[in-house]
Every structure is written in structure tokens, then in C-alpha cells.
């Protein structure tokens, strides 16, 4: 088990009802972390084209996570 700090932005924050959660999890990838969040926040879902960042750098859903990492979940962007 390790600790992963999760932060939700925009629509994800609204779906989760919070902007952050500290997970104690055995998740190995960003994808696993999101699955763990789905268990905890039933209104959360993953629209296509959602993006992720790990420790303030853009990352992939398959990016490995380690104890102490911060994972940022970004819903589909809509700038411009």
C-alpha cells in the first residue's frame, strides 16, 4: 500500500464533490488510481479525452505511480 494525493479539476471536482483526496492504495498506474476513485466517488466517471498529470507534469493513464506521488485528473479540455 502507498499514499497517493489525488486532485480533481473542473467537472471532476464537481462529480467527486471534493477537490482532493489522499488515497491509501495498491494502485500501480494512474488508471488504477482513477479506478480506486470510482469506488470512493460514485458520481465520478471518465469522459473520453480526459487528461492526467503526475507531480505537475502531463502524463498518461498507464504512467506508474509511487508512494507520495500527486495525481491530477483533468476532464476534457475546452479552452478558446
Amino acid at each position: 500500500m502507498h499514499s497517493i494525493q489525488v486532485r480533481f479539476f473542473a467537472a471532476f471536482r464537481e462529480f467527486a464533490g471534493t477537490d482532493a483526496v489522499l488515497l491509501e492504495t495498491d494502485a500501480e498506474t494512474v488508471d488504477d488510481v482513477f479506478e480506486a476513485c470510482l469506488q470512493q466517488f460514485p458520481r465520478l466517471f471518465r469522459p473520453e479525452a480526459s487528461l492526467v498529470a503526475v507531480n505537475e507534469k502531463m502524463a498518461d493513464w498507464s504512467t506508474a505511480v509511487r508512494n507520495g506521488d500527486e495525481v491530477l485528473f483533468f476532464p476534457p479540455v475546452a479552452g478558446g
Binding site: F9, A53, F74, P75, V77, G79, G80
Partner: peptide, 14 residues
């Protein structure tokens, strides 16, 4: 630039 900005930057619209 505008096309990539709209597609890639973590910016959201409500």
C-alpha cells in the same frame, strides 16, 4: 497555435 491551445491546454469552460 489556436487549434493546439484549444486541444491541449488544461483549461475548462463552464
Amino acid at each position: 497555435i489556436i487549434d493546439e491551445i484549444k486541444a491541449r491546454l488544461p483549461i475548462w469552460k463552464r
